[in-house]
Amino acid sequence: MKKRMYRFFIDYEKEERWVNDMADRGWNLKKTVVGYFVFEKGTPGQYIYRNEFINRKSKDYFEFLDEMNIECVSKFGGWAYYRKPKSEGPFEIFSDASSKINYIKSMNRIFIFVLLLNLIIGIYNLSLGLREFVVGSMNTSVGCMNLIVALLLFIPIVKNENRKKGLKQDLHIFEG
């Protein structure tokens, strides 16, 4: 039995928690494409799921995960979902503060770049749209879209910065 759902998350950690809640209720994620999720009926609490931002991750990395008995269930648009049977114990992709910080840094670098790109293009489109009232309506709507994307990216960027700050504080007293 399959269940298809649309759900949009701004925070990737919240999304991961929700996917794990579904797994605990017996719905195992099979595929996800930005906000669209396909679950398959299974035993409740069978798997632990983790997501990862995988921009520029090599084939080598996925082979490595495979060797570690980590199953990659879905890969789309820079994001991957992995799972491991719960019976094998706790499952995290990053286990210490320094590797978590590196991960967040590389994610935010891309997020900030895409945000700035959308901001610049958005403002440019809006300025074109506002200049030519009727013909420019297309520019206005595209420009608004750009600004919405920029705003939606702003939230995870700020959350990531806060996570990074917390981890860096830990590094002052703990080894990671």
Partner: peptide, 14 residues
């Protein structure tokens, strides 16, 4: 004794 569980991403990076 099960105290240190290294994540795959952490091992790969190291």
């Amino acid at each position: 004794n099960g105290r240190v569980r290294l994540g795959a991403g952490t091992i790969y990076g190291a």
